[in-house]
Amino acid sequence: MAAVGTIEPAAGEPSVGPPSVGPPSEGSPSGSALQWRRGARTWLRWIGVVPFFGYLAIFLLIPTGELVVDAFKGPTGHFTGANVSAAVHAPYLSSFETSLELSALSALFGGILGVFVATAVLHRGVPAALRPVVFTFSGMASNFAGVPLAFAFSATIGTGGVLTGLFQHLGVDLTTLVPLTSGVIGLSLVYTYFQFPLMILLVIPAIDGLKREWREASTNLGASTISYWRYVGLPIILPSLLGMMLLLFGSAFSAYATAYALSGSTGNLVPEVIGNLLNGNITVDPQLAYALAFGMIVIITVVLVCYSLLQRRASRWLR
């Protein structure tokens, strides 16, 4: 699987992790017997992680690899590019477009709102007692996804929803302004519900990494708040922010339950289409499902590669 390929350079990159430490008890390296023993011990050291990586291989790597192969197979087992070709043409191309649009929008909304809230909570004028509260609520909200979240938004801005009723008095029809069952605007608001708390949790350590001295030094040298963020704060944390927004993008792109619960079998997101092809809501076509899933893997791989590049970039100034 291509995503795993990106791990290798990270493993060989010594500057990313803490300085690698030698074996705890260093003996004198002379003597071939000792060297042999040490070699054996190095080898033994890897044994401890075999169960973990073995497990991941079975439940993450093999299924993905199998899927990539199957995407290029016809119903009788012969190799063909037809599935993949179908997956990237109408009508399925529009599913990818919708999915990408939704993921980008919700990552943008969630990312920006998350950064604003995180900065607000860390503001000096805001009581520090609020931090653990915001942390906890973020934990709650970022895990409030799937079917219950879909119902909650139906009860809020769906037909007969609480806000819908409220806005009707103002002459605004929320069900046409932010429809939950079609288009991406309404759905991206739903996704933002778990995206922005996730962003808060991810970004607070990064913002905390900005030293108070930098802010004070820049103020002391005459910089306004805007200049500080423009020249110092943002350049330092931008790679982290972008990396985290990529994670949000990926998690929105993968999400299935929330959207499916809202739109049922009429949904046009890639995961929904795959689901429909598998459970026969419309037609059963596993080969096409494999091809669409392969498309998702390609996009997720791109996201992960960019993420790890940004992570490396981020560790340059924040450690």
């Binding site: 030293k211 004070e216 030094a217 820049s218 002391n220 020249y231 110092v232």
Partner: peptide
């Protein structure tokens, strides 16, 4: 405000902007 006082301050440590 602090940014209009035109005073020079040297902090304990780590006050240099790491990206410059």
């Amino acid at each position: 405000p602090a940014n209009r006082r035109n005073m020079g301050m040297v902090f304990q440590a780590y006050s240099l902007f790491p990206n410059m």
